[in-house]
């Protein structure tokens, strides 16, 4: 449905996006995962025709959107990262305006607004002013404004930033429900759990580049299914790291602040040996956290930093 080819975008001397390529298939939820500043928003801004890339192509249903961006705008629904609504107007008035913008009017618009109010769970509050809504409700109506015209491709840029868990769950369930109904979705986030929950395929971005892509299984395979063990001790130095690295079965080791992260197989045996080594080395273990392989581990493995650094 959407093919992004060799995309580059620079702002002055800053290279925001570099050599980004991926494909989104019809009916899937495609994830763009990466920390803040990774280039996710710039990438989807180009896909949503806000500004053109410095170089590269974006093909939507076989049509290069750079040739005539206006032509595909009606088929896209974009949920921006910021709340893009008029706070002094009611939810209904906001939806009415955005519906108008996408060519809806009269009874059709009214019907669609009521449907959207149901989808985003704001039926009882739709006539209230947006500035009276909670953060989560604003996020939901922000999503609703992008759904009015039933877009073929829904692009969601970090739609759950800064909201309560209840609203977050509602949004995630809404995304899944929309996908079940056949909507193709690009979902960007720096929350690994959201991407794991929603997306069938994922692109991991960092510093403007794609550093890995594929299904979740394929990505986890990149670290050979290694378990991540995080150990917090009272003091860390290079000699302790060296000592742990030499344990048989440890695949990789990284240190951040006062936590050492090790990757390896056969956790039970490995764990006993690690505790033994650290204790013998004269260090006090404050906590141990064992994590199954996930996208966070992949990101850490590939970049040496956590997603929310």
């Amino acid at each position: 449905m959407l093919v992004v080819e060799d995309l580059y975008k620079s702002f002055g001397n800053i290279q925001a996006v570099e050599d980004v390529s991926f494909e989104v298939k019809k009916g899937e939820v495609f994830g763009l995962l990466g920390p803040n500043g990774a280039g996710k928003s710039t990438t989807i801004s180009m896909i949503s025709t806000l500004f053109p890339p410095t170089k590269g192509n974006i093909i939507f249903e076989g049509y290069n959107i750079l040739d005539n961006p206006k032509k595909i705008r009606n088929k896209l629904g974009v949920v921006p990262q910021d709340i893009a609504l008029y706070p002094t107007l009611s939810g209904y008035e906001n939806l009415s305006f955005w519906g108008n913008v996408y060519g809806l009017k009269g009874a059709e618009l009214k019907k669609r607004i009521n449907e959207i109010a149901d989808i985003v769970g704001l039926n009882g509050r739709i006539k209230d002013k947006v500035d009276k809504y909670s953060g989560g409700m604003k996020r939901r109506i922000n999503i609703g404004a992008a759904l009015l015209h039933k877009p073929d491709l829904l692009i969601m840029d970090e739609p759950t930033v800064g909201i309560d868990p209840q609203s977050r769950n509602h949004i995630l369930d809404t995304v899944l429900e929309l996908n079940k109904q056949g909507m193709t979705i690009i979902y960007t986030s720096h929350y690994m759990e959201e991407v794991e929950y929603l997306c069938s395929r994922v692109c991991i971005m960092d510093e403007g580049k794609i550093i890995a892509s594929g299904t979740q299984h394929e990505l986890v395979e990149l670290i050979n299914g290694k378990t991540q063990i995080n150990i917090k001790t009272d003091k860390i130095d290079e000699s302790l790291e060296e000592c742990l690295k030499n344990i048989s079965g440890v695949y990789a080791i990284k240190t951040m602040d006062d936590i050492i992260s090790l990757y390896g197989e056969n956790v039970d045996i490995l764990l006993a040996e690690i505790i033994d080594k650290v204790t013998k080395y004269g260090r006090r273990i404050e906590s141990i956290d064992v994590k199954k392989p996930n996208l966070e581990s992949v990101f850490l493995h590939l970049t040496g930093k956590a997603l929310r650094d």
Binding site: S48, T49, L50, K70, R73, N74, L76, V78, P80, D82, I83, A84, L85, Y86, P87, W98, V101, Y102, G103, A145
Partner: peptide, 14 residues
Amino acid sequence: KYKTWQRMLISPVS
């Protein structure tokens, strides 16, 4: 200020 400007620019309205 309300970020609706960018949303309008990516909508069908010119």
